[in-house]
């Protein structure tokens, strides 16, 4: 059992624990912070599995941009406390049942693959090689992703705009 193996299990434990904490927090700011921790762990995992460029992106985009976006929103809206239970039983039990079912099914399916049980050798894809590969073989997909992001930008702007003026009147008149 090499040092890398030990490192993997430690990181895996960290990710799972942080995610589990994030999922069960009542306070959403806490949840987001735990999730940031989980994403840092994921970034380390990526580094360990030979994808340093992705590790950097994970921190920048996920832990940096996306989570901060969540924080913005949570700060922006002022939530009242919901009445009733934190986890309604009628929803909790089926959710647990389904998740456990998924876990069982995926474990059985994954475990049934015999060639997946041999340990993998460590390897590394340098960012430069990865970049060349990405833009040589997947340039079209990259372009499409950039279009997608543009659409998201416009869409978020349209949705977030406050509606004023005549449209408010039409809304009143609407049945």
């Amino acid at each position: 059992m090499s040092i890398l193996t030990l490192l993997f299990y430690a990181i895996a434990l960290l990710i799972v624990a942080a995610t589990a904490m994030a999922v069960t927090r009542r306070n959403m700011v806490h949840a987001v912070l735990y999730l940031v921790l989980s994403f840092f762990g994921t970034a380390m995992l990526f580094y360990l599995l030979g994808a340093p460029f992705l590790a950097a992106l994970e921190i920048i985009i996920y832990a940096g941009a996306i989570m901060v976006l969540f924080l913005f929103l949570i700060m922006m809206i002022r939530l009242k406390k919901l009445p009733g239970m934190f986890f309604p039983v009628g929803q909790l039990l089926p959710a647990i049942f389904i998740c456990a079912g998924f876990l069982a099914v995926s474990s059985v399916l994954v475990g049934g693959n015999p060639e997946g049980w041999t340990p993998m050798p460590a390897a590394q894809a340098s960012p430069a090689a990865f970049g060349v590969y990405l833009f040589q073989t997947h340039w079209l997909a990259v372009e499409i992703a950039s279009m997608l992001l543009l659409v998201a930008l416009v869409g978020a702007y349209v949705l977030g705009r406050r509606v004023r003026g005549p449209s408010a009147d039409t809304r009143k008149e609407a049945p």
Binding site: I98, G101, F102, V105, S106, V108, L109, G112
Partner: peptide, 13 residues
């Protein structure tokens, strides 16, 4: 939806 997907996975698997 998720339950259906799980059943589908089971069926395919």
């Amino acid at each position: 939806m998720v339950a259906a997907v799980i059943l589908l996975i089971l069926f395919i698997g």
